[in-house]
Write a protein that binds this DNA or RNA. Sequence first.
RNA 1: GCCCGCUUGGUGGAACCGGUAGACACGACAGACUUAAAAUCUGUUCCCCGAAAGGGGGUGGGGGUUCAAAUCCCUCAGCGGGCACCA
Length: 856
Amino acid sequence: MARYNAREIETKWQEIWQSRGSFRVTEDSKREKYYVLEMFPYPSGRIHMGHVRNYTLGDVVARYKKARGFNVLHPMGWDAFGMPAENAAIENKVHPAKWTDENIATMRRGLKSMGLSYDWSRELATCDPSYYRHEQKMFLDFHAKGLAYRRESWVNWDPVDNTVLANEQVIDGRGWRSGAVVEKRKLPQWMMRITAYADDLVAALEGLERWPDQVRLMQHNWIGRSEGLRMWFDIKGSDERLEMFTTRHDTIFGATFCAVSPNHPLAEELAADDTELAAFIAECNSMGTSEEAMAVAEKKGYLTSLKALHPFIEGRELDIYVANFVLMEYGAGAIFGCPAHDQRDLDFARKYGIDVIPVIAPADIDPGAMTIGDEAYLGDGVAINSQFLDGLSVDEAKDMAADRMAGRDRGERTVSYRLRDWGVSRQRYWGCPIPFILCDDCGTVPVPDDQLPVTLPDDIDFDEPGNPLDRHPTWKHVDCPACGKAAQRETDTFDTFFESSWYFVRFACAQAEQPVDRAAVDYWLPVDQYIGGIEHAVLHLLYSRFFVRAMRDCGYLGFDEPFAGLLTQGMVCHQTFQDEAGNWLFPEQVDARDGDGFVHHESGAPVVPGRSEKMSKSRKNVVDPEAIIGSYGADTARLFMLSDSPPERDLEWSETGVEGAWRYLNRLWRLVAEAPMDLGPVDGAKPDRMEQTVAAVHQSVHKAIHATTGDLDRFHFNRAVARIRELTNDLERLDETMAGAAWVMREGLETIVRLIGPIAPHLAEDLWQRLGHETLLTDTPWPDADSALLTDNTVTVAVQVNGKLRGTIELGRDAGEDVAEAAALADPAIIRALDGKSPRRVIVVPNRIVNLVIAG
RNA sequence: GCCCGCUUGGUGGAACCGGUAGACACGACAGACUUAAAAUCUGUUCCCCGAAAGGGGGUGGGGGUUCAAAUCCCUCAGCGGGCACCA
């Protein structure tokens, strides 16, 4: 049985698309644009199945939208700065730039073998000075606008790798790479003032209608907006006041103590001449910040000699503690404790024998009977034991308390956020240099425009730990641009999320002299459809949303949101195997034994099959895309990626599934190459007469167009594939003896080829040519469904008796209710089911169902 | 702990607004072709009773709303994700 030669066909069409510039685009104000973007890869080595899935999804959208007439921008580039390049430099003595360039070349080859419809003329790599010079320029603008600043801040310090780690690089209190216990250090850090946009970043989530709810919710929670009251209590015997933040000012009469963070200025001041307190603070700072550490950590406090005065209760003095559970980074770093209505406060109060006064009680409980045991009461209710608040609801009490506090100049309504400013300094070589000069006299001085870009030196060594830029003999030594005295460059580089926060803008004008070419960006942006992994739900997507706002406010852009639509794809999973010693095994090392069970391919030793997990090198459950493309072709890989699972769900890799995709493409190829009948000319006229079966197939062609179009619009790729396969099955009902069959066979084949074009583009292009077309399928518009053929004249209506299906009847479309009822009552199966009884009630849903109700 | 999502045949998944559950595949079984195998083609395949006609059950468990529930509500369980001393 003949099979198609995937390798030959795919190479051939890739070359043709390339030479004709099929996917190169320019701005065209007369055409509607569509910008499809997949998250660009980090060039770590070779492409993996996650890339194949991501880029297949994007390519189907791009090719489909192009067929629908849009001017489609579909670019690709490289997120090329990052730690793995430095690790390779340390381990293999290869320069990060060389390592990165080689990986890019390998991965570009891999991507090109997939036949992706990229405009390669826009390719960019973020490690190229022609890219990062622009972000240095923008950073200076951000700084001038107050959106970037430098300050001392607490960081995670890895003492072995000698660098700051991001929070997500700290796992259970240890550096993710070195395994060293991470220290808290206070270092000067460059920060981005993302908090300036906190309100807008939350509020605008609502307008992102084509984003998954889950991602919007995650960002919402991450930003963590809460409305509350900033307030000040007097400190006994002092002119100073203690500032606190609360969202439960309705419980102010239940306040029985105050607590400040160990890092609070007041605590540090007191510790200066209290060694015991200093020791307590040190203990708090050394405490692990891991999840488990937090969960088991006991509430601990240190009683200071200070007392705060309750604002409304004459004579109530509140002890001020330094407490380990109060965070300096949130609110004001100080709280009032209301043990009755906060679990942490209650735990603390029970430990230190502090009063517990209930001030909110459920409406149906007698205030006198309200008691607190080991659990704080967090529910709704009315205020009790609260003077002027008594009897008010929680919300009313909040309002009243806020007003009274404000009236005494002791409170101010405010909003607090969980979100912190974004620290972007990294003590790393392979990143974009931060364009500032540190001068003893002038402070932080921006690198003048005419000295940009600040490029990385090539001659570096990684023989010692730490930042090679800092150790470089000459690079950092420069004169201060302001005063001319000897000064030093900033040797920190940007967090690599910096580059990925605006690359989608740069794609619109990849060659522009300025950071952005406003006309091009105004035309192409925002991205209409962004596609990538859910793991970026918060960081990358939030930073990008911030960055676009910052760029807007510095005059670079005229829009607010970078990504109008977002599709988060699931992971590619595969079965795992381990030998009895627990070592992971590659799938090809494992043989299935007859019956069940698995054995090692060579030794025959028993193998323990594990659950299916995300493909990863460490678990050895990877399948190399290039091997699959080599043996089956890219079209098979692409079809398989889309066939079974919806894009947002995890996809189970299966060899048999790939085989199935391969079989289908061959079947389609044979159907065209060895067409069972003479299909007639390309532009043959529709026959006057069609046999019934032929007419039915003709109708399925148009139904398939309609359904597939709807499925692709909604990214239901697995259903689109099912529709196309269904139509293929239908076509096989045609027989050359049937009147009109040849014409409908041609119509059907051409339709399948066009519908599958975005999914299996090489084969489709080839079959399009075999069908006699001289123009490229890639330049062919999407087929239109004949709406007259989408509805049937007759419908099958289900008939239920008491809600149970008892038969079906054929009715004319939109038949009246009386007609439907009569037909139902006349149906033999229904007569039998009714058993002589007459329905008490009849429900008719036109074209769908008749329900006869006889029982009560 | 808090918040969110998911749970449908042996498997991946269909089922639009509550209206014939299981499309399309994978696998399995049977058959055709073949000396044989591969490939290909045809048929069967939610479970139970039945030779069939037909009947009964069925969308994680329990309950509810409705003429009608995979779909809506309550509740429990399992799995997954996010956040985590956030005042």
